[in-house]
Design a protein around this nucleic acid. Structure first.
Length: 282
DNA sequence: ACCCAGGCGACGA
DNA sequence: TCGTCGCATGGG
């Protein structure tokens, strides 16, 4: 890994990485870009400002220690994506998607935040998901810097009543958030245990929470537990499976299905001519 | 106004 | 076990 320690910042030199696509492709909901291409976000109890300039990524006001012990892991910098791409791009559709969106990395995020976030995501759109999560953090998270809040703990949410969540305007999802918090806080859904479960058991465990079905469970496993074989099928992926993969998704890609899935998801959502218009609204 | 959003639970056949 | 429908809310 090639990086330089500057006065207050870390400068990482990296190829084939796209910060904006990575932070804005629907896997994370707590990064916002300001008017100067700088992303601001909160992960656990750390606040970061970060931006990209060509092959340089600048981590603002970051110590080498935080970079090596925390952000390197969060941004999945030790995974050899080129090796994975070599395998999965033997499929021509993934190859196209990878050309378009191959700068995305799968962020190593945290289980409870992903459980809560992807419960909120169901039958919802990304701007609204972000809004609900922002309100949730501002109300129940910890203020780690002036006006900057961490994601609230499951214990904190579990201590609330359903009416306390009304202001989120999360609709029918509010009761699911509460159920998730209660089950996680009480260890009825044991996050530590899920890390060591085989994936099918982990799916079943997550689905004991109300509001977690097959799709949300896959997202939690992929983004919260780094199970890169997890393959969430949302409306967009369903469309692309119908259009591109009538005979099934290629077997050799399945161990890295989650990475391929992200490339395809970003590709067909944002590239106008990826699939025909009539498939976009079926 | 209308349609849809990174779906799910409840219900009926 | 498989289809269908209602769900809260608000952006386009």
């Amino acid at each position: 890994m090639d990086y330089q320690v500057l006065e207050n910042d870390i400068c990482l030199k990296i190829k084939n990485f796209n910060l904006e696509d990575t932070l804005d492709c629907g896997q994370a909901f707590r990064w916002e870009k300001n008017d100067k291409e700088v992303f601001r976000g909160v992960v656990e109890n750390k606040y970061l400002e970060i931006f990209q300039s060509g092959d340089n990524i600048i981590f603002k006001n970051t110590t080498e220690k935080d970079f090596l012990n925390f952000w390197k892991d969060y941004f999945d910098l030790d995974t050899d994506y080129e090796k994975i791409k070599k395998i999965i791009t033997k499929d021509s559709i993934i190859k196209k998607a990878c050309t378009y969106a191959g700068g995305i990395k799968i962020l190593r995020q945290y289980p409870w935040e992903m459980i809560c976030s992807f419960i909120i995501s169901q039958n919802n759109n990304i701007p609204r998901i972000k809004g609900i999560i922002t309100r949730l953090c501002e109300a129940f998270g910890t203020e780690i810097k002036p006006n900057i809040y961490s994601f609230p703990t499951a214990e904190k949410i579990a201590s609330l009543k359903l009416e306390d969540l009304d202001f989120l305007r999360a609709g029918f999802r509010a009761k699911y958030i509460l159920d998730a918090a209660q089950k996680v806080a009480s260890n009825q859904v044991d996050i530590k245990a899920i890390y060591n479960m085989d994936i099918e058991k982990a799916r079943e465990m997550l689905k004991t929470i109300k509001g977690i079905g097959p799709k949300v469970a896959e997202c939690i496993l992929l983004f919260g537990f780094y199970r890169i074989e997890a393959f969430p099928i949302d409306v967009w992926i369903k469309r692309s499976l119908e259009y591109f993969y009538k005979d099934g998704f290629p077997e050799f890609s399945k161990p890295y299905g989650g990475i391929a899935q992200q490339y395809i998801f970003h590709y067909i959502r944002t590239c106008k001519d990826a699939i025909p218009e009539e498939y976009r609204k079926k």
